[in-house]
Every structure is written in structure tokens, then in C-alpha cells.
Simulated scan of single mutants.
Amino acid sequence: MLKDFLKKKKRYATIPSERAKQEVPEGLMTKCPACRTIMYTKELKKNLYVCDTCGHHHRMAAYDRMNSIFDSGTFVEFNQNMTSLNPLGFDAYEEKLEADRKKTGINEAVVTGEGQIGGFGAVAAVMDARFRMGSMGSVVGEKITLAVERAIDKKLPFILFSASGGARMQEGVLSLMQMAKTSAALQKLHREGGLFISIMTHPTTGGVSASFASLGDYNFAEPKALIGFAGRRIIEQTIRQELPDDFQTAEFLLKHGQLDRVVPRLEMKETLRNILDIHAS
């Protein structure tokens, strides 16, 4: 009798089968890396990928970013079909690019376009860290430069959301040349009296932080975004000093004068609308 009772208990104590586990759709839930809260991905997306529990800003895809700042139905993308070549013959570079295109649904690490924010026209470029870690190659530099030139021609403000690991090593010196090219285009925008708003998101590092990302008339960042040129460990080894815990965060840079403001994502569109309104004349 006791044996039958134990068998019965054992039947109800079994772990779920693999089939039962697979019934939960992939991507249904997301765990916050900061506070470990598990939430519905759909609800997280509605909140612009900001954790409702701790305020952690999750990475955001380029098109989601565009939709979050532009008025509904006004955004028009341009230079969408520009793609990178392999000028240095780097092994498996084309295969990696194609894999990222399939994974992200975009052709390069930046999306550019034009639309309205609160009724005010603007040209924007949004970098996407899912594509080659947002690294800056020839196409990224060219698309940003063309977007700046479009802003000059149409006398519109230019807005850039940066998210990058720096220059793309597979394109060597051609990547480094984009630092000068984009900076020269922004200097022309400045001479023409145009407005450039730079928003640095997590992460903005390397040659991107050392060039166009830091040249805004307004330099903003999202909360706790990693912003810097060289890595923390390299700097500590070079200067032989221990750096503060918050070193290279948006808040640290704001405190030391490199940023004008740290803007939470849920306040970003209203902040941009107000600035565009001020400069509308």
C-alpha cells in the first residue's frame, strides 16, 4: 500500500517534458539584466524598452527608435539599399554581413531618413548595435554624410543617435577616414547655420565617440550609457591609476562637462520637439 502511494506521488512530481517547455513561444518574456525582473516583451516594447521596475534602458533597434521619435506616418527612409563591400579581402566578411542583414532586417549599421517630430521637420540617422556592433565602416560614414548634406540642402535640423563599438576593423583605414568625412560634413552644416543634435546611447565608443557623436550643438545621452574612446582596462594600465566606478557613464560625463543633459528615453521625443520649436525660426 505504501509502495502504491509513493508511486502515485512520484507521478505528480515529474519535471515538465521538453515538449511542454517548447510550448512557451521564444521571445515572449524578457529578463531585465539590471534588476532581473521578468516581463512580457510586448509590454517592454510599449514602454520603449525601458524596464518599468528599475528604469534600465534596453538596447533599441533602429526602426523602433525612429518610430519612437517621429510622428506616426511621417518617417521616410533613404539610402536604404547601400551595402558594404570587402575592399581588403577580409576572410568571411561578406558572410558575416549577410548574417547580420538576416538577423536585423537592415542592410547596414545605420538607418537614415526624414520625418516630423511634433510637426517640425528633421533628418535623422540612427545607429543599430545589433549590426556588427554598430561599427563604422565606409557605408555607415557615407550614409551619415549624405544625411547631413540632405539636412543642409533642405535647411532641416540633423539628429543622430549613436550606438557603436568604434571603427570597423574589416575595412581598416577606410573606416578611419569616415571620422574625417563625417566631421567635415557637420562643419559645413555648422557654417550654414544648421542645427545638429547628438544623442549617445549604450554604447558609444572608439572612433564614433571621437568624431561625429561628440560634435553636436546639443550633446545628450541616455541614462547610464557607456561613452568613451579607449576601454577602461587600457586606460588604467596606461595611467596606472584606478578609475571611479561610474567612469565613462553618461552621468560621469555630464558631471565633467562633456554632455549637456542626460535624457531618459521616455522624455526624448518631447525634449527634441521643444528644441526644434526653439530653433524653428
Rank of each mutant, 00 (worst) to 15 (best):
H202T: 06
M127G: 05
K96A: 14
S164C: 04
Y12M: 11
Q187W: 06
H279G: 13
G27T: 05
Y12K: 15
G89D: 02
I235R: 10
A109W: 05
G141K: 03
A213N: 04
N107A: 11
A62V: 14
E236V: 04
L259T: 05
K255T: 13
Q187D: 08
K96T: 15
A210G: 04
K7R: 12
E98N: 15
H56G: 06
Q248H: 04
Q80F: 15
K31M: 14
P264Q: 01
V24K: 07
C32T: 02
P25Q: 07
V50Y: 03
S72H: 12
D246K: 00
V110K: 04
A129P: 13
G105K: 06
R65N: 15
M66Y: 03
D64P: 11
M136L: 06
T238R: 04
L88S: 08
A250Q: 01
N81M: 09
E77F: 09
P264I: 02
G228M: 00
R132L: 15
K9N: 09
G172R: 05
G194F: 12
F90S: 11
G118R: 01
T201G: 11
F78W: 07
N67C: 14
I152K: 10
L28S: 13
L215T: 01
F196L: 11
K102N: 12
A92H: 15
G113Q: 10
K10N: 10
P87V: 06
V24D: 10
V262H: 02
P244C: 00
A180C: 03
D64E: 15
Y93R: 13
L160S: 06
D277L: 13
K102H: 05
R19M: 12
C51Q: 03
T182R: 00
F252K: 01
A147T: 11
I38F: 01
P33M: 08
K10M: 12
D246P: 01
I197T: 07
K10T: 12
Y40K: 13
T205F: 05
C54T: 13
A163D: 13
T205V: 13
K102L: 10
A13Q: 14
T41V: 07
N219G: 00
A13M: 11
L276H: 00
A280P: 08
R168G: 14
R150W: 10
V126E: 05
N107Q: 14
A213V: 09
A124P: 08
E222S: 07
M169Q: 03
R261V: 00
G27L: 00
N67M: 10
Y93H: 14
F229A: 12
A109H: 08
L215Y: 04
G119D: 07
S135N: 12
C32N: 04
C32K: 01
F90A: 11
E94F: 09
P244W: 00
R11W: 06
P33D: 11
A147L: 08
G228E: 03
I152N: 05
E95G: 09
